[in-house]
Computed example of a mutant assay.
Amino acid sequence: MTVRMGQLMHVYADQYAEYERRHNNLFPEMKRALKEAGAHNYSIFLDKKTGNLFAYLEVDNVEKYNDIANSEACKKWWAYMESIMDTNPDKSPVSFDLHEVFHLD
């Protein structure tokens, strides 16, 4: 069963282009880790007025996907992104999970 997920994050105003550049050059090991965790149909959208990011992705299994946080690839990516966005003490992005209230198939 596919689960749709939405999250909010924040990138610093002077880092919009850098954020996009880094994602256009996603580390191969991070891309592989995402695929192995069952993530697909993954997009991130930027509101250039506020720096808010909206991430949408679909996963096959939420628990399996959440385990990606323990991977070396993910930890490396978080460290790489830490200087350009709001992060937690463990360098993970500050993110807020959204509750889906409507979906049109």
Rank of each mutant, 00 (worst) to 15 (best):
1 M>F: 07
2 T>R: 14
2 T>Q: 14
3 V>A: 11
4 R>F: 03
4 R>H: 09
4 R>P: 01
5 M>P: 02
6 G>Y: 12
6 G>C: 12
7 Q>D: 08
8 L>E: 06
8 L>D: 06
9 M>K: 05
9 M>N: 08
11 V>S: 03
12 Y>K: 15
12 Y>S: 14
12 Y>D: 15
13 A>L: 14
13 A>V: 15
13 A>I: 12
14 D>T: 12
14 D>Q: 12
14 D>E: 14
16 Y>C: 02
16 Y>I: 00
16 Y>D: 04
16 Y>K: 00
18 E>Y: 02
18 E>M: 10
19 Y>T: 07
20 E>F: 01
21 R>S: 14
21 R>F: 13
21 R>Y: 13
22 R>W: 05
23 H>E: 08
24 N>Y: 05
25 N>T: 15
26 L>Y: 03
26 L>I: 09
26 L>K: 04
26 L>G: 01
26 L>F: 03
27 F>G: 01
28 P>W: 01
29 E>W: 00
30 M>P: 07
30 M>H: 11
30 M>A: 08
31 K>Y: 13
31 K>S: 14
31 K>V: 08
31 K>L: 13
32 R>S: 10
32 R>F: 05
34 L>Y: 06
35 K>F: 10
39 A>Y: 00
41 N>P: 05
41 N>K: 12
42 Y>K: 05
43 S>H: 11
44 I>P: 00
44 I>W: 00
45 F>A: 13
46 L>M: 07
46 L>G: 04
46 L>R: 05
48 K>H: 07
48 K>V: 07
50 T>S: 11
50 T>G: 03
51 G>M: 04
52 N>H: 14
53 L>Q: 01
53 L>A: 04
54 F>W: 03
55 A>P: 00
57 L>I: 04
57 L>P: 00
58 E>S: 09
59 V>K: 06
60 D>N: 02
60 D>Q: 02
60 D>A: 02
61 N>W: 09
61 N>D: 15
63 E>D: 15
64 K>I: 03
64 K>H: 08
66 N>K: 10
66 N>Q: 09
67 D>S: 09
67 D>W: 02
68 I>T: 01
69 A>N: 11
70 N>W: 10
70 N>V: 11
73 A>G: 09
74 C>L: 00
74 C>R: 04
74 C>W: 01
74 C>H: 02
75 K>G: 01
75 K>Y: 01
75 K>L: 06
76 K>I: 13
77 W>A: 09
78 W>R: 10
79 A>V: 08
79 A>S: 15
79 A>W: 06
79 A>F: 08
81 M>N: 04
81 M>E: 05
81 M>P: 02
82 E>W: 10
82 E>T: 11
84 I>Q: 05
84 I>C: 01
85 M>N: 06
85 M>P: 06
86 D>W: 05
87 T>R: 02
87 T>I: 11
88 N>E: 15
89 P>T: 08
90 D>P: 02
90 D>Y: 03
91 K>C: 10
92 S>Y: 03
92 S>V: 06
93 P>V: 12
96 F>W: 13
96 F>E: 14
96 F>H: 13
96 F>C: 12
98 L>P: 05
98 L>R: 04
100 E>H: 03
100 E>M: 08
102 F>W: 10
102 F>L: 11
102 F>E: 02
103 H>F: 09
103 H>I: 06
104 L>E: 15
104 L>R: 13
105 D>E: 15
105 D>W: 07
